[in-house]
Every structure is written in C-alpha cells, then in structure tokens.
C-alpha cells in the first residue's frame, strides 16, 4: 500500500447525523454557560459585599477582643506581681528565714 493511499479513505466514522447534533449540542452548551455566567455575575456583587462586611466586622471584633484581653491580662499580672513581691518583702522583714528555705520557696522544692 502506498503512503498516500491511507489518506484516500477515512478509517474513522461518526454516528449518523452526528454533526447536526454536535452543532446543536455546542449551541446548547454555550447557552448554558452564558446562563451560569450571568447568574454568577448577578450573585457575585451581593455575595462579595455581604462577605466583605462580615469580614470587616469579624476583624474589628477579633482585634478589639485581643486588645481588651491583653490589657486586662497585663493589669492582672502586674497586680499579682506587685502583690507577690510585697508579700515576699513583708515576709522577709517580719519573719527572717534562712537562704535555703527562701530558695526552696522560690523554686517550689520542699
């Protein structure tokens, strides 16, 4: 068989009336695509604006809570720290103890 003979007859076929059906299917598929796209475009601005509002409120809430908690924690810890140092100072003044007992108190070792 000559090299060019293969080209003379197509070895592939398609179902009957395939190309008419194909054109129709393509048109239908693009119409569906258009409908989906336009619905997505219609929905997007509302969705995006609602989401951006929610995100902004959430960020503000998180930042505000963080600042509040941080401030209250700081004041608590400062209060407790000064309280504890006062207690130690008073204890050392009023009840003189040896260095080892004091070391045990600080390290928590019995």
């Amino acid at each position: 068989m000559d090299f060019n003979d293969y080209k003379k007859h197509s070895s592939f076929t398609t179902p009957d009336g395939y190309f008419e059906k194909l054109n129709w299917e393509i048109k239908e598929a693009t119409c569906k695509h258009v409908a989906t796209e336009s619905r997505r475009r219609r929905l997007t601005p509302k969705y995006v604006s609602i989401m951006s509002y929610v995100a902004t409120i959430a960020i503000i809430a998180v930042v505000a809570t963080g600042i509040f908690l941080n401030t209250s924690n700081d004041s608590d810890s400062m209060f407790s720290m000064s309280d504890e140092s006062d207690f130690i100072e008073n204890m050392l003044t009023d009840y003189p103890i040896d260095e080892y007992t004091f070391y045990c108190y600080l390290t928590g070792n019995e």
């Binding site: 592939f12 179902p15 393509i26 598929a29 693009t30 695509h33 258009v34």
Partner: peptide, 18 residues
C-alpha cells in the same frame, strides 16, 4: 476515540465562547 473527541470539541467551543 469518538467519545473523547466529542467532549473535546464541545470544550473547545465553550472556551472560545467564554
């Protein structure tokens, strides 16, 4: 394959359209 070709042709025209 005819079936794969059918899908790809449709995909090609949808891509072209968009």
């Amino acid at each position: 394959s005819h079936d794969d070709t059918n899908d790809l042709v449709q995909e090609t025209f949808i891509k072209a359209w968009s």
